[in-house]
């Protein structure tokens, strides 16, 4: 459990919008709350009143005294975020959850991102580069419009892009590229739609390559109270995305159990 999570009310510093669907929100917290790549925070407009009621779980895109998140518009809460203007106060609860595990010495990190799932991987990539490792990244979306921040990722990784319609990069899916890139000394970090992560986890398991996923589920609290974020655990029972994740070894999740609801990334409304 994160030892120093806290709640702050911080004004929006800026919003950078990439079309209607994707928005980077940066908050002026004024001090570093110590978020590590892979951790998340619960975000809610401090002036939302009774609705939308619940805060939205969002991975950190960056940390420090001005942390940022990448928002995909999927419902009422994210619509409000997409329209927020600088100065609007937000309640931020974080840092929460388990960060990405430390990269293993001697293994080459391969980052596999789908759509808005790029956010925690960009944070990870920046840390890797700062530590002297330029990662390989595979970034996929349905079309070229579903690749927010691809330019940022290209600057700090050896990037392979895929789109299902071929509008950018290779036509196909991230798994097509991953199959070709996998080698014994690789380890994979992935975040994206559930079906994508399940496919990535399956490939890694078959090739005996470590795979760390960042999961997303609906969540009311973010710190182990509401119990609204269960994932089917390998071996039975449930694990909770908020306290045992969001970053977790892919082998700990049962991706094929009937009670594993398929979720698109950016599902928190």
């Amino acid at each position: 459990m994160a030892p120093h999570r806290s709640q702050v009310v911080a004004p929006l510093l800026r919003r950078e919008s990439m079309g209607d669907a994707y928005h980077v929100l940066t908050f002026d917290v004024g001090r570093d709350l110590g978020a590590a790549p892979g951790q998340f925070l619960m975000v809610r407009g401090a002036e939302w009143g009774d609705a939308p009621l619940l805060p939205r779980p969002m991975s950190y895109l960056s940390g420090g005294p001005t942390p940022s998140i990448l928002v995909k518009v999927v419902g009422e809460g994210t619509t409000r975020m997409a329209r927020a203007e600088p100065g609007e106060p937000f309640s931020l609860v974080g840092p929460l959850g388990v960060p990405w595990r430390a990269p293993s010495p001697g293994r080459r990190p391969v980052l596999v991102a789908g759509g808005v799932g790029v956010a925690p991987l960009l944070f990870l990539a920046r840390g890797l580069v700062a530590a002297g490792t330029r990662p390989v990244a595979i970034y996929g979306g349905r079309t070229k419009k579903d690749l927010p921040l691809d330019d940022d990722l290209a600057l700090i990784s050896d990037l392979h892009v895929t789109t299902e319609d071929g509008s950018r990069g290779q036509r196909g899916r991230v798994t097509d590229v991953l199959e070709a890139l996998l080698a014994e000394d690789v380890e994979v970090f992935t975040c994206g739609p559930d079906r994508m992560m399940a496919a990535v986890a399956d490939i890694c398991a078959r090739r005996d390559v470590p795979c760390e996923v960042s999961v997303e589920t609906p969540m009311a609290c973010g710190y182990g109270v509401c119990l609204g974020c269960p994932l089917p655990a390998a071996g039975g029972g449930y694990i909770y995305a908020c306290t045992e994740g969001p970053c977790i070894d892919a082998r700990r999740i049962d991706w094929n159990r009937p009670d594993h609801p398929p979720r698109a990334a950016g599902r928190a409304s």
């Binding site: 009621l53 619940l54 609906p218 969540m219 609204g228 269960p230 994932l231 449930y238």
Partner: peptide, 11 residues
């Protein structure tokens, strides 16, 4: 008790 299968909550 392990609880119910997901989804368990919605707004």
């Amino acid at each position: 008790r392990a609880g119910n299968p997901p989804e368990r909550i919605c707004e």
